[in-house]
Amino acid sequence: MLAAKQRVVAQNPLYRVGRLPASHCKEPAVRPTSVANVRKYYTEYIRCLDKVWKPVVEKAGFTFQSPRLDVFTGKTRTLCDVQDSAAYCGSGTISMNATFDIDNYRKYNKLWARTTMAHLVAHEYGHHIQRLIGISDASATRTSYLKGADASLLESRRIELQASCLSGVYLGADRSYFPVAGSWRQRWLWTISHRGDEWGTQRDHGSSKSHSRWTRRGFDAGTPSACNTFTASTASVA
């Protein structure tokens, strides 16, 4: 069984689909000044992600299904049963915290708030792709056989860094239309290089250095084959 699960994560057909096509979508023009606006931003963004990933997932031989979007506030209960900035749950739901986005836009750098939104929703969508192509299930099975917390955390980092890499793949393919250029690109690069688990309670998402490296790797390549974290060395997913 484990050998079969290893093939799913390490030799998945998604790695052979080639370069992702551009969605020709611009960054959603709506700004996160209200819950309704945040919902509209993510709805438009996911529609563009669907446009590109649907034919790619089907080309790899899998059935595509669009994720459900759950936009919540700090005062409401998310369908994924978390109160984080963003989350994906196995039922196919992407949960995004509107309070987090609105506060960031109001109190801090507005461009940072936008690049964070763009990265996070594409990252959670990356988890959705993992679910559709069997990687999520295979990784969960692999984890159940692992011994020790360190081994489980390593597996978690492979999953999380792959999701961020896939977010980079989408933006890289669509860079000319979004566009990912100028000050937006510079702030995005800053954003992805300042998201790491070294400031958290456990090493389950990857360091800021690893996160930046894998996200940029996906962006530069524009193809899912660049995101095979399951054959990468332990050091590269630290």
Rank of each mutant, 00 (worst) to 15 (best):
S176A: 10
R158N: 01
C89G: 08
P13V: 05
A60Y: 03
S207I: 01
K209Y: 14
Q65W: 06
D197P: 07
S34H: 05
M96I: 12
Y15C: 02
G74T: 10
T229E: 01
K110H: 09
F230L: 04
I129M: 03
G182K: 00
I94H: 07
T73I: 06
R114K: 11
L166S: 15
S164N: 15
C89D: 01
L14M: 12
S23M: 02
C25M: 09
L161K: 15
M1C: 14
C80P: 11
N104S: 07
R195S: 11
R47T: 13
G206M: 02
A181H: 12
I192H: 10
C227V: 10
G222P: 09
S144F: 04
V180M: 11
G134H: 07
V180S: 10
L14C: 07
K209D: 05
F219S: 10
K107M: 08
A118I: 01
P224Y: 07
W214C: 13
M1N: 10
D137G: 06
S136E: 00
Y88H: 10
P67V: 02
T33D: 12
F230M: 04
P28A: 12
H194T: 15
K147C: 07
C227R: 13
F100L: 03
H211Y: 05
P67L: 01
V169W: 04
W184I: 01
Y170V: 08
R131Q: 03
V8P: 00
F64E: 00
G168S: 11
T63N: 02
I46Q: 04
V8A: 13
V180I: 15
C227E: 04
L189P: 03
A22K: 06
R7P: 00
L14K: 00
T223G: 04
A181T: 11
F230T: 03
T215K: 07
S193E: 03
L154D: 12
D103M: 03
G196P: 01
R158Y: 07
W199K: 15
S193Y: 07
G218T: 06
F100T: 09
I135D: 02
R106Q: 13
S136A: 14
T215Y: 06
V52D: 03
A36F: 02
T73N: 05
Y105L: 08
C25V: 01
A138K: 01
H123N: 05
T115Y: 00
W53Q: 00
D103K: 10
E160H: 14
H194K: 05
T229L: 05
M1Q: 15
A10P: 01
Y15Q: 04
N97R: 01
Q162F: 12
G18I: 07
L161A: 02
S183H: 08
A181R: 06
N109A: 13
S85G: 15
K107F: 03
N97M: 05
G200Y: 08
I46H: 08
T201Y: 09
T93C: 09
E27N: 05
S144Q: 15
V121G: 02
D70Q: 09
F219L: 09
R185F: 10
E44N: 07
G134V: 14
